[in-house]
Nucleic acid binder design. Structure first.
Ligand SMILES: [Mn+2]
Ligand SMILES: [Mn+2]
Ligand SMILES: [Mn+2]
Ligand SMILES: [Mn+2]
Lengths: 263, 263
DNA sequence: AAATAAAGTTAGATTATACAAACAATGTGC
DNA sequence: GCACATTGTTTGTATAATCTAACTTTATTT
């Protein structure tokens, strides 16, 4: 059997392997370390935060700033972040690559959970938080193939490719649209179960066409029309709905949707 | 995001829930604790060992006996084992139930990996060692349904049912058969990749009919006939091949085999 | 530029898991 | 029933990850 050495393991940095167009120093991170790297990647590249600080990271990870300072020193010793006292924090190239792999795993598992096990999009994030730490390249490659190499996850987030290409969708939100403009819903800015369930209640779905019928001058409430129905939403809510160009056919398939209308 | 609190968590023993015919005190075990419980269950109920000791456990888990002694004290404090200094070790009813759940998860994941992701039976154990610790009852129930409620895993081991019924197959081995006896291969006593690959090489498969053609009086080498082919195997090897009655139809399906011959 | 607020660090403690080395108990052979 | 081997425990140490409380540095505001 042999008990799980993963969390309490000594690290070796010897081996390295070349994947497609990038070299990854194969090391074994603890789950905690993976979570720190993932948080750093998200804060530096997915959110609009200019420079990530200890407090920000601590908040995101649900730990105290003192803990983060400590961890940062250890991550620096392992050449995973570049950082010095009171200075700003950034991932090394190698760590960025490792973080991308974690996000890739997270989103592929979420896709599996929704598409094959029938979970709703508000249930999968918590479970994927655990599955993302399972370490087997073979596993994730086969899962990817099993799913038909999906491009987006159930929340509309882009799934990094095997060779480590990671980019976030441009963050245009529903709250940025003016009256009489139309757009397609392509993502959400909040993956919490409560928010996603609220989105379900409102009737919004990824891939849906949205028409901004009006905006109240007094309180900025937005009236949108989806599926021919008129609905009123708040600015706060609209700021968490990402909009963009019409989804590609592949993306429609990834979401398990029918392209309504044509054919 | 919130980092994985699972491994380093304070434990609460307050809540309890009733499943089918058993009451389980819902607690959160660390991966390490789960591995100790699983090892204890396997040693006490699946192997022929009369009483489990610290050395035995240490060997099985790949740690030193001192570590086991330490852990046993902590498991006792949490009412997971009954044990006193120099005395013998046993799982409490509650811990047994928890251990069975881990084994259930392990075997369901192994089934998924073989059947749906195309892994070979020698590759899945290591990966399942990690997947078995993912904590979501909903997940495992849905996986079970997705797989069609399989009864046996890719190694022929029985999958515990949701209501916690766990039993091992009677351990009749190929080495126990006499000359001219026949039997069906139903399992293996060693799940290591190296052994399973050797079994593949030899040509043995679960569900196969085996005829013991002869046994050498001098060195006890066994000559068996499978699929019309004659093969010579050692006693050591034969002792790790479990034999039994013909597989049930359901079990054939679980293994993804065709019942050759009829129909 | 000084005062205050915010952000970040350090020191000291805790828990989980592991090890090695020294020690203690148990069991077996004669 | 003692000698010796086996088995199991204790003690002391280590690392990973966390906290609180006290402290320091940097940023903002007047
Ligand atoms: Mn997610
Ligand atoms: Mn995570
Ligand atoms: Mn296994
Ligand atoms: Mn395990």
């Amino acid at each position: 059997m042999c008990i799980g050495k993963l969390p309490t393991q000594k690290l070796g940095f010897a081996k390295n392997e070349t994947k497609f167009c990038r070299t990854v120093y194969t090391t074994t991170l603890t789950q905690t370390e993976e979570n720190y790297l993932k948080a750093l990647l998200k804060l530096t590249e997915e959110s609009a935060i200019p420079a990530v600080g200890t407090n920000e990271l601590a908040l995101h990870l649900g730990v105290k700033p003192a803990t983060v300072t400590d961890m940062l020193k250890r991550l620096r010793d392992k050449a995973l972040v570049s950082y010095e006292k009171y200075g700003k924090i950034s991932l090394t190239d190698n760590a960025r690559s490792l973080a991308i792999d974690v996000i890739r795993k997270h989103r592929l598992w979420e896709t599996f959970l929704c598409r094959n096990l029938g979970f709703s999009w508000h249930q999968v994030h918590e479970i994927a938080e655990q599955l993302e730490h399972v370490q087997s390249v073979e596993l994730i490659d086969r899962l990817d193939a099993f799913l038909g190499f999906p491009k987006i996850d159930p929340h509309g987030d882009l799934i990094p490719s095997k060779d480590g290409v990671f980019h976030a969708r441009p963050k245009r939100t529903l709250s940025m649209l003016g009256v009489s403009q139309t757009a397609v819903m392509v993502g959400v800015g909040d993956n919490s179960a409560s928010f996603l369930q609220y989105v379900d209640e409102v009737g919004l779905r990824l891939g849906m066409d949205i028409w901004v019928k009006g905006i109240q001058p007094y309180d900025a409430l937005i009236e949108i029309v989806i599926d021919g129905k008129s609905i009123t939403i708040s600015q706060k809510f609209a700021a968490q709905i990402f909009v963009g160009a019409k989804l590609a056919d592949q993306e429609f398939l990834d979401l398990g949707l029918d392209r309504e209308g044509d054919l």
